[in-house]
């Protein structure tokens, strides 16, 4: 089954209208891969948080989406990257309620709870890349931490 056509994409994140396209694309891709309605909603919500962080804190960037497979189980991987200031203290940024400016501080930690895999690479002064993956069916529990 070739579903990659409507799934793989690279979308710019430069304005709040781009956030709308990001959400729409993630919704369509997740639906196409067979995610349930609740799982689609979780992934789109996580994408919305991360894309807004890319825009607001990272000064803009992009999202790349890819279909991934492991042991016959399909998934969707989203990578948000920017060349902004980076995150100096990642643990603090991930904690609920921490915001460096005017937000609720729920975005990053909340997005982590809404996906199956969550990785952040950030270099102060040169940028941030957040990669998340969710699986159509639950992945085998290999380890508890994220």
């Amino acid at each position: 089954m070739d579903t990659a056509a409507g799934v793989e994409a690279r979308l710019p994140i430069r304005s709040d209208m781009d956030l709308v396209w990001v959400r729409q694309h993630v919704r369509h891709a997740a639906a196409k891969l067979g995610f349930s309605l609740v799982d689609q909603t979780k992934l789109v919500t996580a994408a919305s948080e991360l894309a807004r962080n890319t825009l607001v804190h990272g000064g803009g960037g992009q999202m790349e989406t890819a279909q991934v497979t492991t042991g016959g189980n399909g998934g969707l991987r989203l990578t948000f990257s920017d060349s902004g200031p980076g995150i100096p203290d990642l643990d603090r940024a991930l904690s609920d309620g921490y915001t460096s400016g005017g937000g609720l501080g729920m975005g990053l930690g909340g997005a982590r709870r809404l996906v199956h895999d969550f990785t952040v690479e950030t270099v102060p002064g040169s940028g941030t890349s957040v990669r998340v993956t969710s699986w159509v069916s639950r992945p085998p529990r290999l380890r508890e931490d994220v």
Partner: peptide
């Protein structure tokens, strides 16, 4: 509020 949205909000922590 849609049920899927309500479920997601809880997990988001909002």
């Amino acid at each position: 509020m849609r049920p899927a949205v309500a479920i997601t909000l809880v997990e988001l922590g909002l």
